[in-house]
Design a protein around this nucleic acid. Sequence first.
DNA 1: ATCATAGGAGTAAACGTTTACGTTATATTC
DNA 2: GAATATAACGTAAACGTTTACTCCTATGAT
Lengths: 340, 340
Amino acid sequence: MNPNASNNPTIKDVARKANVSIATVSRVLNNLSGYSDKTEQKVNQIIKEIGYQPNAIARGLINKRTQTIGVMFPSVSSYFSADILHGIEEYANDHNYSIFVCNTDEDGKRTMKYLHVLREKQVDGIIFSSEMLKEEYYEVLQAMKVPVVLVSSKADYASVPYIKVDDKQAAYDAVQYLILHGHREIAMVSGTETDKMAGSTRIEGYLKALQDYGIPFKENYLVYGNFRFDKGCIAMEKLIQTAPEATAIFAASDEMAVAVLAVAARHGLKVPDDISVIGYDNLKLAEMAVPPLTTVDQRLYDMGKLASGKLIDMIENHCVADSSIMPHRIVERQTVRRLT
Amino acid sequence: MNPNASNNPTIKDVARKANVSIATVSRVLNNLSGYSDKTEQKVNQIIKEIGYQPNAIARGLINKRTQTIGVMFPSVSSYFSADILHGIEEYANDHNYSIFVCNTDEDGKRTMKYLHVLREKQVDGIIFSSEMLKEEYYEVLQAMKVPVVLVSSKADYASVPYIKVDDKQAAYDAVQYLILHGHREIAMVSGTETDKMAGSTRIEGYLKALQDYGIPFKENYLVYGNFRFDKGCIAMEKLIQTAPEATAIFAASDEMAVAVLAVAARHGLKVPDDISVIGYDNLKLAEMAVPPLTTVDQRLYDMGKLASGKLIDMIENHCVADSSIMPHRIVERQTVRRLT
DNA sequence: ATCATAGGAGTAAACGTTTACGTTATATTC
DNA sequence: GAATATAACGTAAACGTTTACTCCTATGAT
């Protein structure tokens, strides 16, 4: 009888039934040369017949390629990550790569554990999303010898390709937009105080815009959140206490901008009549807000796609991709009022 | 010299340097018995020294287990999926499983392709999220012989374990909540017209509640969306035209409820003063809305965790888990007004 | 002293592929 | 018709593990 009844059929089963060697089956599978049309047809027929599917694990073992990439997110469930992930997944799938999602929780331990798992599972490459690439991580990454690309992030000490918008300029543009709408009392809800990445560069843009337009910076106009909604609420509450004269607020993320909206409403402040707000990201969330949020678009989905693209290029061509600065633009909706 | 300089060290390298056989190294790696304390220490020391990490691919080949599960989403980037994914990921990671995310786009072709990829990659199990399990899929799944669990979905012809809330009852409760707040003109923004799953059962709940309280159903009070924001907007626009007398709206998803909020605002309708709305899901989005959305909580994160748990149980104990009906509850926020 | 026993360790097959190399038969060239 | 090239395969090693067997040695019981 069939010596391999209960298990999934293997290349051996195909070979036996088709009366050829497994080498030949392998050849038609990978359509190389070295077989006649007749055998090709015979083999393909048997494959259909017994429902054979190649075993990617066995392939991976010998090819040393798994067609798999790992993606690290500080928080998979954040609306920010979701968009990037979607882009990454789309491109990767189209190019026959699967993706492992990893949720680091911004926790070093967890991240290291994940890095080891990805190493053991022999991923072909890794994408780091919106997270500082600590040296500790970088060391493991180097030991793994797989390509890495950063998205919405940047490593200043190591030359790892990244994809991000020019944060400083984008923040500058956002603040300038407010200024050009007649605002001079502009507060900012920033990201994490210590986050060199998206945090401080956006603050720099804010500061520079104020300076360029001769607006003095006031300490109490700058508060910190962590890019997420909850901290954004706290930050806005603080702002209402300490900077009630502000006519406009620049939030360093859409989630926080929406928090500003929420807290403003809670306090009976009308947007944009009593206070204007501009966000950062252009998540779907911005469209959904009431009123719809004016924000700076950073095309996260495309950034995800591009990240996938660069990484796969590096994997397949053993090259090193260069970094990209993504264009940004302000999308005008209804949360900024023109001061007359 | 080292015969294996450029590549990652393997168990062979460890064995050679420790002067033991690879079998012994394997034994200490998997801490089985059959070696002395001294060799154990020696081996562990060498492992540290040369930075050896086991190759999960090779392991997978022989063990026929990959510690990997595939998760299918109709849309990875939806805020709904993000929460479930987070739950799944969390539990899986804690139990040493990695997860492949798959975005089906609700497209049969894409789904089938993914199913084949997952098969080739030898995943240990599959979670299907919020999607009808078509027979076509089910056949491949059976051929794969891996456990499957459904989350926020249900297959009526096949006995696949699922996790979901009692949609009909939850919808009933939502509508009842509106009724008990004095509403009688209650419209519904439903999900996909054809979606047997979450679509029609929620409509049934709506209908039953109306009936139980002696409220006649009006055709024009029921409009269809697809659970997402954009269609929700269109649905609400329609409602404003055809059912202006409605005092309350039950939306079959938070995204659509938020759409209702947005469109209401666009038309100068105040929520909850002019119109009340209750959503379904309790996404973070509901909290973020202005005003904060009253909705029915279905604890998606926990459902994700539970799905992971059941699946891993099935994988490891070769059993078949039973289904779970998750508790739901109404979380009261500020979009429903008590009619006096 | 003999024997059974168990602990410690090695050997080699197996997992499902790919691929370098070898072999045969046929076609081509002169 | 001999020499050579080429097409069409088959053989077997390799990828990095796990594990069933086997073997040796020391220990304890008799």
